[in-house]
Nucleic acid binder design. Structure first.
Length: 423
RNA sequence: GUGGGUGUAGCUCAGUUGGCAGAGCACUAGGUUGUGGUCCUGGUUGUCGCGGGUUCGACCCCCGUCACUCACCCCA
């Protein structure tokens, strides 16, 4: 038996970075007024089809969709934004507070061909803001990502931003783009010709080199922005510059979900092979209304948790060692003989209850092998309880770093050990 | 969905024109009866991914299949 394709186990020896990222991210989000939300893993298929877009790759061929026992079509969530919008509308949150900020983490599911940095079950850290139209919230989110990555010690990342415009400016842009593409149709790859009919915006993101050549001088969304979108994007750019946040404007950045409007961005890395996006986000001002809520401006981002951890592992192997050493024990009890085992069991329970991280190995091995085990578990102290010690009513406490040994009387064992070890 | 690469011990990998299945690490037991890391000595661990074929004989050659992996695509 083994995991199904594209799914994987994250084993205890790799978990410390995940926990570290969660801890840093959540603390940062909380300080900016975000609150955690937890949403279901399963939703009605319709929710994703309507929000992400019927013609996107995600909806067309990547979702895990199946009928439940009564025939209702359900889908394992491929992303979080749609569900959070659904929740926002369902609980009429707009009615109790004009501004809501959420964050969450959890698994997402997309049935793609697995490769480096891409899994069928992958994890995202998400942040979403509802109710603010001002560009300053766009900047705040980009800053937030930047700050988080800085706190995690990441380097070599670059922010790419673009503006996709709004329903107001789309028609003029689409016309310009179609005119442009019509003239060079024969130079485009088959895929792009297919895209012309379905989603011409996506062609700008094509990586085929002949298409890239053909696209030189193509109209860009940012050259066709309506005055309101233009102002919005100008404030985003100038404020980021003032704040000293490093970024570049990427006219060809087109996100693969149809709900995006205005500001869109990606944080990219060079260290993950073809999977360069570690985080991506954007504004989706039309989505809440589209899903049946009131007209509500909204914006959010998703961090590729798996990719982020992989980048960190690559950048900092030493960090990994430090993290794993944090898992050490305060005390390992070496119990020799049945009588000692029973006593050791009770002592370890009492000590753990009192906050001293303690373990006993109940296998009844020799002193030597138990000492080896204490060493492997990186215990800072070892308490030796053999026949001699029990008879004398005092146990040997060995400091594994200094090799100093002291005797600890049994009758006052727990408080005594607490004061020695917690120094 | 389409290509390329790789499948041998728990891990990392050797394996000679086709002739007994290997190393290091890990694990385990010892090294004067009860003291860890380094050191020394011994020991355990295999459906050579799976199924066919060729051959006296296949880890090795051929066909098929599955898995992993990288890339296309798409995205986080």
């Amino acid at each position: 038996m083994q995991t199904i394709r594209g799914f994987r186990d994250i084993l205890p020896e790799h978990i410390s970075l995940w926990q570290k990222v969660e801890k840093e991210a959540f603390a940062l989000f909380e300080s900016f007024g975000f609150r955690e939300i937890r949403i279901p893993i399963l939703e009605k298929t319709q929710l994703f089809a309507r929000s992400i877009g019927e013609t996107t790759d995600i909806v067309e061929k990547e979702m895990y969709t199946f009928p439940d026992r009564k025939g209702e079509k359900l889908t394992l969530r491929p992303e979080a934004t749609a569900s959070i919008c659904r929740s926002y509308i369902q609980h009429k949150m707009y009615a109790t507070d004009p501004v809501r900020k959420f964050y969450m983490t959890g698994p997402m599911f997309r049935r793609e061909r697995p490769q480096k940095g891409r899994y069928r079950q992958f994890y995202q850290i998400d942040a979403e803001v509802f109710g603010i139209e001002s560009p300053y919230i766009d900047i705040e989110l980009i800053f937030l990502l930047n700050e988080l990555f800085k706190r995690l010690g990441l380097t070599g990342l670059s922010a790419h931003i673009n503006s996709l415009g709004c329903p107001e400016c789309r028609p003029s842009f689409q016309k310009a783009l179609m005119d442009f593409l019509g003239e060079r149709k024969e130079k485009l790859c088959d895929n792009c010709i297919r895209r012309m009919a379905k989603n011409p915006l996506r062609i700008l993101d094509c990586k085929v080199s002949t298409c890239q050549d053909a696209l030189k001088g193509a109209p860009a969304t940012i050259d066709h922005l309506c005055p309101a979108c233009d102002d919005h994007f100008t404030i985003v750019r100038t404020t980021l510059e003032k704040q000293g946040v490093d970024f570049s404007v990427d006219k060809s950045l087109v996100r693969g979900l149809d709900y995006y409007t205005r500001t869109a961005w990606e944080i990219q890395t060079t260290s993950l092979g073809a999977q360069s996006a570690v985080a991506g986000g954007g504004r989706y001002d039309g989505l809440v209304k589209e899903l049946g809520g009131p007209e509500t401006p909204a914006i959010g981002f998703a961090i590729g948790f798996d990719r982020l951890v992989e980048v960190m592992e690559q950048l900092d192997r030493e960090q990994l060692d430090i993290e794993s050493k944090k898992l050490s024990l305060d005390l390992f009890i070496v119990a020799l003989g049945d009588a000692a085992l029973e006593k050791a069991y009770f002592w370890s329970c009492d000590l753990n209850r009192a906050g001293v991280r303690t373990m006993v190995d109940f296998r009844g091995k020799s002193l030597k092998s138990l000492m080896k085990r204490a060493d492997k578990l990186k215990a800072s102290h070892v308490l030796i309880a053999g026949e001699n010690e029990l008879n004398d009513n005092k146990l040997i406490l060995r400091n594994m770093n200094t090799k100093n040994q002291t005797f600890v009387p049994i009758e006052n064992l727990v408080p005594e050990l607490m004061t020695i070890i917690q120094k």
